[in-house]
């Protein structure tokens, strides 16, 4: 391939006190691509995301962005690297409005330093953040929710808002942690089309249980089992891979 991958992970290993949570995991993400990371429970999907976003320190492995080697980022560095992540447990601030919740994700545009923002009430910044937050909410078709308090939202709406909060920093790479988790079939259909639409502006890595979501939105899939990649490739190839079927059947047989 001529252009280097947007994001590349090679030989990533994570140990938790002698236990290999991840071993030699690799993944590449290209422009405008949706890549799925799947696997049975306990396969290491969440640990993989946590390593990517700096909550877990890798024991070994390399991380590169746009072909350039890079140190494993800290969580608070992600948005400035153009990476944004959602969490499984949505985590909206109940006593803030939806708009304010989304604004929290726009910190990288709050250019004024901590101290100066404490003294000069930088209205220009504030307005910019508000505007960005409104745009992000429109992108997930939740513009009408802007002034609601977060604790009055229905669960599927909290999922939209959480994605808006991840989008507000205008990421090139979006890490979605179980976006369809806990959703009913109608909302899953909606989430599918949203992810399709997001592809035009960013590349996405998706950790997801719902296989129909994964199969319908992902260009390529990596399958983890016991912390190792057991299969990877285009979705329709991977789904027929005997090793993958065995891993899933094995998991379900238990």
């Amino acid at each position: 391939m001529s252009t280097p991958a947007m994001l590349s992970v090679q030989k990533l290993s994570v140990d938790f006190g002698g236990l290999h949570a991840l071993k030699d995991v690799y993944l590449e993400l290209n422009h405008h691509e949706v890549v799925g990371v799947i696997g049975p429970n306990g396969a290491g999907k969440t640990t993989f995301f946590n390593a990517l976003s700096g909550f877990v320190t890798p024991t070994a492995g390399t991380f590169s962005l746009h072909g350039e080697p890079h140190k494993w980022p800290r969580p608070d560095q992600l948005t400035s690297l153009g990476i944004s992540r959602t969490l499984q447990g949505v985590g909206l601030f109940p006593d803030l409005t939806v708009l304010e919740n989304v604004m929290v994700g726009a910190q990288k545009f709050a250019k004024t330093g901590l101290i100066s923002s404490a003294f000069g009430f930088t209205n220009k910044d504030e307005e910019l953040l508000r505007e960005k937050a409104r745009i992000a909410l429109e992108r997930v078709y939740a513009g009408g929710l802007a002034n609601r308090r977060a604790d009055t939202l229905a669960y599927p709406d909290t999922k939209r808002v959480a994605i808006a909060r991840a989008l507000v920093s205008e990421p090139q790479i979006l890490l979605l942690d179980e976006p369809a988790g806990g959703l009913g079939s109608q909302d899953i259909a909606w989430m599918n089309s949203l992810i399709h639409n997001l592809k035009s502006t960013c590349s996405i890595i998706l950790v997801e249980h719902h296989m129909d979501v994964v199969m319908s939105v992902c260009d390529r899939i990596y399958v983890l089992n016991f912390g190792e990649v057991i299969s990877s490739g285009p979705s329709d190839v991977v789904r027929r891979d005997p090793a993958v079927i065995a891993a899933y059947l094995g998991a379900e047989a238990v």
Binding site: S53, G54, F55, R74, P75, D76, Q77, L78, T79, S80, S84, R85, L87, G91, F93, V104, G105, A106, Q107, K108, R165, A166, S169
Partner: peptide
């Protein structure tokens, strides 16, 4: 309220 979310939002 949510240190993890805050960190992911770029807050130190």
């Amino acid at each position: 309220f949510a240190p993890e979310i805050a960190r992911l939002s770029g807050i130190r």
